[in-house]
Amino acid sequence: MKLVIAIIQPHKLEDVKKELYAAEVNLITVSEVLGHGQQKGVTEIYRGAKETGNLLRKVRLEIAVNESFVEPTIKAIIKGAKTGNVGDGKIFVLDLGRCVRIRTNEEGSLAIG
């Protein structure tokens, strides 16, 4: 079992969701986050006071998958999120120790799917 975490551009979320559904990955959690990588944020000005390096809005996806779905999930995220410009985001893949479905107490790969 793996936990795939991806940070993507907010406006690419719809594309990524479409690709994930096409790869039969249907269970995702999405949250709004702030951050910046090589893109170095943006400039904001409030009553003349300039703030540089502010954080950009990003979307974070968390997807728990069984081994056979790891590569298709990564491929789908890249296909949906890639524009070729800085700021497209990153994908992290972590080992997942345990997974429990609250409704049924099922565990492991049964609970993920």
């Binding site: 943006v42 904001e44 000005i45 409030y46 809005r57």
Partner: peptide, 18 residues
């Protein structure tokens, strides 16, 4: 257009997240 007009046209944002 992707980043939004608030930041790109006015260097302001309406809502903070943190």
């Amino acid at each position: 257009e992707m980043m939004g007009l608030d930041l790109t046209q006015h260097h302001e944002r309406a809502y903070t997240v943190l």
